[in-house]
Computed example of a mutant assay.
Amino acid sequence: MAQDRPTAGELLAAIADFLREEAIPALDRTDPRLGFQTRVAVNSLAILEREARLGPAADAREHERLTKLLGRDGTLTELNRELARQLRAGERDERDATLMAHLEATTADKIAIANPKWR
C-alpha cells in the first residue's frame, strides 16, 4: 500500500513532531517526569520511522553479504544463525577480512537506524 498517504513514516514523524513541539514543552512546565517519558517516546518513534525507511534496504544488504560470506542462501534469520554457529565453533574469527567487513557494515546500518547522531 505504498501509494497511500500519509505513509507510516510520515505518520510517525507527525506524531513525533507534535509531541516534541507541543506536548513536551507543556509537560516540562507541569510534570517534568512525564516530559522526560515523552522524550523517550519521541525517540522511540524516531527509531521506528528510521526502521521503516532504512530497514528494508539494510536487511537486503545484510542478506546479500551473508549469502556471499556463507556461500549459501536462506532467510536472514537462518543465515545469521549459521554465522553464529560458525563463530561459536571457531570456524571463523576476526582474521577473516570478509567477516569483519560484513560486521562493520551491519553495525553501521544498525547505528544509522538506532542513533544516527552517534558518529
Rank of each mutant, 00 (worst) to 15 (best):
R92V: 01
T77H: 09
G55Q: 12
T75A: 00
E91Y: 08
E21P: 07
L19K: 14
A41W: 05
L99F: 03
L19E: 13
D96A: 00
R20C: 08
T30V: 11
A97S: 11
L48M: 14
G71P: 01
R88S: 07
E51G: 13
D93F: 01
V40Q: 09
Q37S: 12
T75H: 04
Q37G: 11
L76R: 03
R39D: 08
A41P: 07
I24R: 02
F36Y: 15
E91P: 00
G35I: 03
E78S: 10
I47H: 06
K68N: 11
R29Y: 09
R85Q: 12
I111Y: 09
E104I: 08
D109L: 02
G71A: 05
Q37T: 08
F36M: 14
D28R: 15
M100W: 00
L79Q: 12
T98P: 02
I24V: 14
E64P: 06
I47W: 02
R33H: 13
G55Y: 11
A26M: 14
D73L: 05
A108P: 01
L79Y: 09
R53H: 05
A84K: 13
P56A: 03
I47Q: 06
R50G: 03
V42D: 08
T30K: 07
N43G: 15
V40C: 05
R39Y: 00
A84T: 15
S44W: 07
T67I: 02
T30I: 12
L69C: 00
L70A: 01
E21N: 14
E49F: 10
A60V: 11
R72I: 00
M100Y: 03
A26G: 11
E51H: 14
E82S: 12
D96R: 03
L83F: 05
P56K: 07
A84M: 10
A97W: 01
D31V: 02
L87Q: 02
T98M: 08
A26F: 14
R65F: 02
L103C: 08
A52H: 15
K68L: 13
A105E: 03
R20G: 08
E94V: 13
D73M: 02
T77S: 10
A58D: 08
I111A: 02
G35C: 01
R33S: 11
T67S: 06
T38I: 03
L54C: 04
H102E: 02
Q86K: 10
R53C: 08
E104A: 14
R85F: 12
K110T: 14
R50C: 04
Q37L: 13
A41K: 00
I47K: 07
Q37K: 13
R61Q: 13
T75N: 00
T98G: 05
R72P: 03
N43K: 15
A60F: 09
H102Q: 01
E21T: 09
P56T: 01
Q86S: 00
E62N: 06
I111G: 08
E82H: 14
T30H: 12
T30E: 15
A46I: 15
L99H: 06
P25R: 03
L69H: 06
R72W: 01
E49G: 05
E91V: 03
